[in-house]
Design a protein around this nucleic acid. Structure first.
Lengths: 204, 204
DNA sequence: GTATGATTTAATCTTTTGATTAAATCATTT
DNA sequence: AAATGATTTAATCAAAAGATTAAATCATAC
């Protein structure tokens, strides 16, 4: 029997471990995650982790590849689409990207931390999504606003979407805010970010 | 002999450990840091760490308090100064804050990661800097731009300064960029962020 | 239903890691 | 220079953590 679906939550043992590893690694990071944490989260015997994945390191690699894809590749198709205009991209991306991040709030801080810990190893994974510098989006930014480095505007665009998720724990500590308040803040951003971007692109 | 300056780099043993701990903890995070890493970085015997600081945990606490202060308290005096106008704050803060971050590029990702790992414990440290919601700066933002939640604009302001440091490793992997290019990008931001903020505050 | 191979388990191993100890060294006082 | 207490060191400890093993269990083919 291989790769088959089984009892429990209807997942194979291998898939249960991957799912547990996604949760624990993303929440605590590689170094703070113990293999016993993953086994417990999966509700499975620790030895099975090594049976199916050989080592903590290899299981992490599998999760990390997925998560880097999720964070970066998600946006690539739209960024590179030469058919949509600059303003269409600016209007569309925040809606879908913020939705994705609302479903995966730990994703940015996890991926960025792990990349910082090992830039040489994981940097390559990102580049798989094509050269950002030559993306349709960055070319359109450069075209529209010739007097500002398009990387600057690109950074603002991404940052306005991602930064709130990175500072969420701080924000909750600093500003008394319910979960609902926080979600509403981010829902508003879907509308606000396009407006702000257009302001930054105006006046040439 | 207590608290005295000694040979080596002219620091006391205790201070050498603190300095080593600042470097290693900030670079690798709490979980990935081994006490032996710190001893090696300090060039001292491992047992001295426990002799002077009792435990890894206590040494970390000392460093963490410092680093939280550095990241948050640095900005608090200006944010809370009712004497300076909104635009003065917007003009002045990016220059000094980006300079501080250029000297401590690992600071934001380190502090934000550790707070996420333990919001209850470290959240309190931040609040020591007064209620941000009632800061002069946020009140001035609300006054100037009545139709947008000032927290949104505050997030943008901080994010435009901090986010480039958080994504630095990614940026270097994605865009071929020398250290000098990167610094220049950030130097430009000192001028650009006030301009962008004023755009976002205009049109009422 | 028995044989076969895959899967699962409990127990165990080894290395790593935070911490401690006892002895040695050093600085200061008398 | 001898006594005293602080500092430093090498050796060691105990717990944590990643990994392995041998036996038990299970599913499938015959």
């Amino acid at each position: 029997m291989e790769e088959q679906i089984k009892g429990g939550e209807g997942l194979s043992t291998e898939e249960k471990f991957k799912e547990a590893a996604r949760i624990v690694f993303t929440k605590k990071g590689y170094a703070a995650t113990k293999t016993r944490d993953i086994a417990e989260q999966a509700g499975l015997n620790l030895a099975l982790l090594n049976y199916y994945f050989r080592s903590k390191e290899r299981l992490f690699e599998i999760v990390m590849i997925e998560k880097v894809q999720q964070l970066f590749a998600f946006m690539a198709p739209v960024l590179n689409d030469p058919e949509t205009s600059l303003y269409e991209k600016i209007d569309l991306i925040p809606v879908s990207y913020i939705d994705m991040l609302l479903k995966n709030p730990d994703l940015p801080l996890f991926v960025l931390s792990e990349i910082k810990n090992n830039p040489g190893r994981f940097g390559k994974m990102i580049q798989a999504n094509g050269n950002i510098l030559q993306s349709s989006f960055v070319r359109q930014l450069a075209e529209k606003k010739k007097d500002v480095n398009p990387i600057q505007l690109f950074l603002n665009f991404i940052g306005m979407m991602v930064f709130p998720f990175i500072v969420q724990p701080v924000l909750q500590a600093v500003v008394p805010m319910s979960e609902g308040d926080y979600i509403q803040l981010l829902e508003q951003r879907k509308m606000l970010i396009p407006q702000w971007m257009k302001m930054m692109l105006a006046g040439e």
